[in-house]
Design a protein around this nucleic acid. Sequence first.
RNA 1: GGGCUUGUAGCUCAGUUGGUUAGAGCGCUACGUUGACAUCGUAGAGGUCCGCAGUUCGAGUCUGCGCAAGCCCACCA
Length: 725
Amino acid sequence: MDKSYKPEENEKRIYDKWEKGKYFTPKLESGKKPFTVVIPPPNVTGSLHMGHALNNTIQDVMVRWNRMNGIPSEWLPGTDHAGIATQSVVEKKLAKEGKTRFDLGRANFEKEVWKWKDEYEARILGQLKTLGCSCDWTRTRFTMDEGYTKAILKAFTHYYDKGYIYRDYRITNWCPRCGTSLSDLEVEHEEHESFLWYIKYEIEGGGELTVATTRPETMLGDTAVAVNPKDKRYKDLVGKNVILPIQGRKIPIIADSIVDMEFGTGAVKVTPAHDPNDFEIAKRHNLDKIIVIDLEGKMTPEAGEEFTGLDRFEARDVVIEMLKEGKWLSQAKPYVHSVGHCYRCNTVMEPSLTLQWYVSMKELAKPAILAVEKGKVDFHPKKWKKVYLDWMKNINDWCISRQIWWGHQIPVWYCECGEIIVSEKWALEDVEDKKSERKCPKCKSSKLKRDEDVLDTWFSSALWPFATFGWPQTSKDLSYFYPTTFLATARDILYLWVARMIMSGIEFMGEVPFKDVYINPTVFNHEGRRMSKSLGTGVDPLELIEKYGTDATRFGLLWQIGQGQDIKFSEDAILNGKRFANKVWNATRFTLMNLEGYKDVSRETYEKEIKPNLTKNDKEILKKLNLTIANTNKHLEKYDFQHAVEEIYDFFWHDFCDTCIEDTKVRIRENDETKLAAQYTLDTVLKNSLKLLHPIMPFVTEAIWKNLNEKEPLIISDWPQKIEF
RNA sequence: GGGCUUGUAGCUCAGUUGGUUAGAGCGCUACGUUGACAUCGUAGAGGUCCGCAGUUCGAGUCUGCGCAAGCCCACCA
């Protein structure tokens, strides 16, 4: 053996051997319950970050541990198409060439994205391999491959037929930069320091009414002023009109109980086309909806000639100036409030009146709430159960249409007669590029137009645990592997992904999609800030791997996490991992040097020559080994990775190296009569330790295993059992 | 507005159901090794366990209040 372990020379070679040996693909053994994990599909254009590294290390530890225990273990890898993110990356690339997606047209643009996808998918999956992930690559899936697309279409038509999917014209989260709607979960709120502007509206027939607003520019689209019906201050004003400043329009004063008497002046301007609350008020009072800001965030002609084409924030300044000049502005109070931003490009969201597809969630949520309450799905740490339930019990309908091109196009056609046709068949034909003759079932017209929008990426991810195994087709895989066993993911997709998988799993499979959900800690940098590439606060796990090796990186990450406690990343832990890998390597060198003349002993030799000569120290370490095996199992069963790592580390370093090796060293060198027993102890403790360590540090242990001339690779060796002595 | 979490050695964190002198890794100090170990070993210094009040024979561990930091949810005009 070399004097030290060189990860860079070993890791790739070892990984290839595992893959070639097909150790990652389990056999479907009837009667044996499999251990199944589906990977949280990484964004196809993304790159492995520290959170992924931790998350995938955790999954790999569980998979390897189960595999060594003789359980058919399936870890299904794959990627999702990440609609908005991917599209915007490719659009950015086109922009550098001076082109837009419209120059290419939809079909060509999609081709362009597919090319991009192929390249980046290979890259990110390769990164998982670098991390040592023992995924079953024979079952790799992508949310837009053909079979998966069938699942999407099935799910859509199923929901539609059940009346759960509907189309509605209402205020949605709109990103003027991305040019698409977003679901509530894709909007990130940030505190903004701004002002609460108090504007005086002149009352017809005398007097004035002051309203307070954070968005003065929207006053151009006001169609009423609302007060609370219980508000005595304004009781006599209800039914009268005010004159809208700047525009001079006459708008009514109405009473609506949604108005908070305590806030501002207790009178609120109503802009139905640009605020969800106001939209609701307008519905109740049958008010006009005047759109003054268009979908690009620019003022429309409706706002007035002098505003047309102005950016919404420029318009705000102009409106404020004009209000000041007209003496309509009574005060501007500094005010902190939260403003929605696009999760993708951070642009301030513009709530906009658009026609979108929604999934009604209330009925879907009910059994998903019950399942978790009854413990069919367990969360680790437990606190996430409450977080899940709180959200599910207050769930809102889900906007699933997106105004982009990259994704699953909605399987809906509109006829000129107004008929809406939802067709799985036609959509499939479009995918396969063989079109049958299509006619409107109502008016027989063939002038049909397909809905241009695509579905939210999470609509497809929601089907991941069963669509990846072939649903809606029945298959051996599906019935064997579903429901899955373990899901490890980050907390920021608890609602976006986990909750929706539970709902759709129950809806389509009649069973929850997984038993245990492990929410891994978030990795922060040393200052406690979120690791982020764009903020420049990230550490690239791939650089760590290059510097310290994969094993050290995995070890260091697990070493740092507590029971669900977030971690402030420290590179020292990774360094410690490297030291440990080196220690293990050298302990093996020592053992090999001292095992001359020692081969696998027969039962007879053991009973005659070893067992009687086991010293007190030998028995002590073997006892300790048994305890370590038991404790490691206990910790892994509880998903307590930190303590599992610590357990093995302490045993190996302090009990085995510092004590046992120092003890046997002397006996072997001096050819003591207990030499054989000492060698037996060394050999036994080392091999079992390597097995215990393998799920955490797969490469160095496998490399060592090879040096021990074992027939079977370590990855499929048996997990240690209690040693009898 | 609602909810969650954290505050233990210079740094990063453990401390199980409350029980003798509060632990680990890194860092620091001293000594020793350099024939398993880009070292390693042995010993050691270092803590008002955020504060206050309470429950208890006994609290880092339970309760209340406060201070500080962070996160999540929400139609805070």
